[in-house]
Amino acid sequence: MKPATPSSMIEITLDTIRREVPHQFTLLQACRSAGIEVPTLCFLDGMTPASACRICMVEVEGSRVLVPACSRQVERGMVVRTDSERVRLARRMVMEFLASSVDLSLAPGAQEYVNRYGARPERYGSKDLPAPATVAQPVKVDNDLYVRDLSRCILCYRCVDACGEEAQNTFAISVAGRGFDARIATEFDRPLPDSACVFCGNCIGVCPTGALIFKSEHEMRRDGSWDESRQTQTDTICPYCGVGCALTLHVQDNRIVKATSPQDHTVTGGHLCIKGRFGWQFVQAPEK
């Protein structure tokens, strides 16, 4: 983003303090520039906000309901509260709703919010209450590269957008169904190899909860050998073509266990293709 000229600055009030912010900022950008932390789940820098998770809600004076900080643009004279009673209640409930219906065990960020806002998902059902509805379902393993564990899906729309017009333009997956039955799916729930999927893995790259995960990581977690404390990260450049994508190789016990690209990298924006994302098995092939 270009530095704002003074004439394009406007004044807003954030948690009782008046601040000048560039007029094109969202409330989230304004808060971050002021050092105010606003929680986010579905939002990802570089992607159009889906405004679906509603964890980033803040209170704007004059607005009947809370507003999503990730997508609402600042307006002159806006008076914003980011930590009022109403805001905290909404955030706590969003986390209760998610934690009581989705497996968040691979989403440390979400777990931190559960604690921060004092969410008590057990209120919806515990030992002496009927079990609440959840999105629990069998893991989908239909290819050698990545698995879909939709019991962990919070429907943040990131994967759909990354597969679609925000990055890959492949449109292999979409939100299907409706209401609590809404889920990420291919057409007619076909296996990924029969779909339009090109296995770029950009959906894994943006998934915040481990619902889309490298098969290697999924298997190591399942057999208990995944151990991030024993992992190192090595930054390199993808060797396959001339684009020059930044690669971060995650290595455990001298084996590459997954590959990512930094979200803020100017070339990739965090996105890769099938070769950069998955094409490293040969490095550790037994027949090498």
């Binding site: 709703f97 009581s100 409706r178 209401g179 609590f180 809404a182």
Partner: peptide
């Protein structure tokens, strides 16, 4: 089903 408060809230 788009947003969490309604998708899960109406079920709860």
């Amino acid at each position: 089903g788009q947003c969490v408060p309604c998708r899960v809230g109406t079920v709860r």
